[in-house]
Structures are given as structure tokens and as C-alpha cells.
């Protein structure tokens, strides 16, 4: 016998919106992954005698990269804010800019990799007893993979938004809110990693590196 089930939404005890809550839990798992990696770094660093620890000048391009990703958070925020406004193509423009900034960031990170490898600090170097550079590649690379994933999500969102605009249909604003939360998080994560690397690896300090990057 078939039952007829009520598909009406019941009023559950929402504390926060479930989707947003799940996203924060996911962010928590990413934090744990990087927490594990940074503690691995610290443990290995501690195994090398202080006077033999590898320090060097981090690639200067990391500074402009930092600016790129922070700026992309701003454009994404502008996009999300303007979704409610009456200029329907403005959010599209802002998301597009975010996307391009994200790609530029990835390209910059890749250049940092190349620069580092060419300066004699590749991922694998068995003549060194200090793994710090390898850790740098792993953490930066894993962060980059998250950026790629977030860009894909953004792209799908833009595709749906564009389709809705062309067909004159309502669209789901909410997914952009979630994308934005994740994107901002990735920005903050990069700030953390950047500061961490400078503190641990850099010979010159953030200010000198900034000067090297921008020439002032």
C-alpha cells in the first residue's frame, strides 16, 4: 500500500541555515588539513639545528599575489551586494573580475614556484637536510588546488546567472553567498600561510620583501 507523504517543509529547529552550516564545517576540515601541515613543518623545523636552518628570500611575486587575492575578495563582495540591485549585469562583471583575478593569482603562484626552483630550491633536493622548501611547495600547491576548485564553483554560478539573465528567469542568489564565504576564507588562509612562511623561512622580513617586490 502506498502512503501519501507530506512533502511540505516542516519547521525544524534551524540554528543557522543548514547549507551555510555545512560549508563552515567543510571550512573547518580545511583548517585541520593546513593545521596538520603547519605543525608538520614546525616539527621538522625543530629537528634541524638552529644554525643550519634554511632561510632565503621568498619570491617577491608573492606580495603582488597577496594583493590580487585580497582584491578579488572585494570584487566578489561587490558582486554579491549588487545581486539585489537593479543593474543585472553589474554582478556578472564583478564575478568575471573575481574570476580573472583568481586566475592571475594562480599564475603568480606558479611563477613563484618556477622562480624558487630556478634559484636552486626545487621540491626535491636530497643534498639538503632541511625540508622547509618542500613544505612550502606542498602547502602553497594545496592552497592553489582549493583556489582552482573555488574558481570552478564560481564559473558554474556565473553560467547559471548568465542563463537566468538571458532567459529572464529568477536565479539563485544564495549560492553566491556561499561561494563568497569560501573564497574569503581561502584569502584569509593565504594570508595565514604567507605570514607563516615569512616568519619561518624569509631572511629579510616582510617589509624588505615588499620593497623588493614593488621597488619602494
Amino acid at each position: 500500500m502506498a502512503y501519501t507523504y507530506s512533502l511540505e517543509k516542516d519547521q525544524p529547529n534551524y540554528i543557522v541555515d543548514p547549507l551555510k552550516f555545512a560549508l563552515w564545517l567543510f571550512i573547518l576540515t580545511v583548517i585541520m588539513v593546513f593545521g596538520g601541515l603547519t605543525s608538520a613543518f614546525i616539527v621538522q623545523r625543530g629537528m634541524v639545528p638552529a644554525d643550519q636552518q634554511l632561510i632565503f628570500d621568498l619570491p617577491a611575486i608573492l606580495w603582488p599575489n597577496l594583493m590580487l587575492i585580497l582584491f578579488s575578495s572585494v570584487t566578489l563582495m561587490v558582486g554579491v551586494r549588487s545581486l539585489q540591485g537593479d543593474r543585472p549585469w553589474l554582478p556578472m562583471l564583478a564575478f568575471g573580475m573575481t574570476f580573472v583575478l583568481g586566475l592571475l593569482f594562480l599564475r603568480g603562484q606558479w611563477q613563484a614556484f618556477l622562480e624558487l626552483a630556478n634559484s636552486g630550491l626545487p621540491l626535491v633536493d636530497r643534498s639538503r637536510a632541511d625540508n622547509a622548501v618542500s613544505h612550502f611547495y606542498v602547502m602553497t600547491g594545496l592552497h592553489g588546488i582549493h583556489i582552482v576548485a573555488a574558481l570552478l564553483v564560481l564559473l558554474v554560478g556565473m553560467w547559471r546567472l548568465g542563463r537566468a539573465l538571458v532567459l529572464g528567469r529568477p536565479y539563485q542568489q544564495y549560492r553566491f553567498v556561499l561561494t563568497a564565504i569560501f573564497w574569503h576564507f581561502l584569502g584569509v588562509l593565504w594570508v595565514y600561510l604567507f605570514v607563516f612562511m615569512i616568519a619561518q623561512l624569509s631572511e629579510e622580513g616582510a617589509g624588505a620583501m615588499f620593497q623588493r617586490a614593488f621597488g619602494f
Binding site: 585541520m32 593546513f34 608538520a40
Partner: peptide, 13 residues
Amino acid sequence: VLSFPVLFSAALL
């Protein structure tokens, strides 16, 4: 949620 990600870090390295 708090512990499996760290296994992932270990496995990644």
C-alpha cells in the same frame, strides 16, 4: 571532522 583531515595531511606528505 576534526581528525580525518589530519590523516589526509599525513597521507599527502
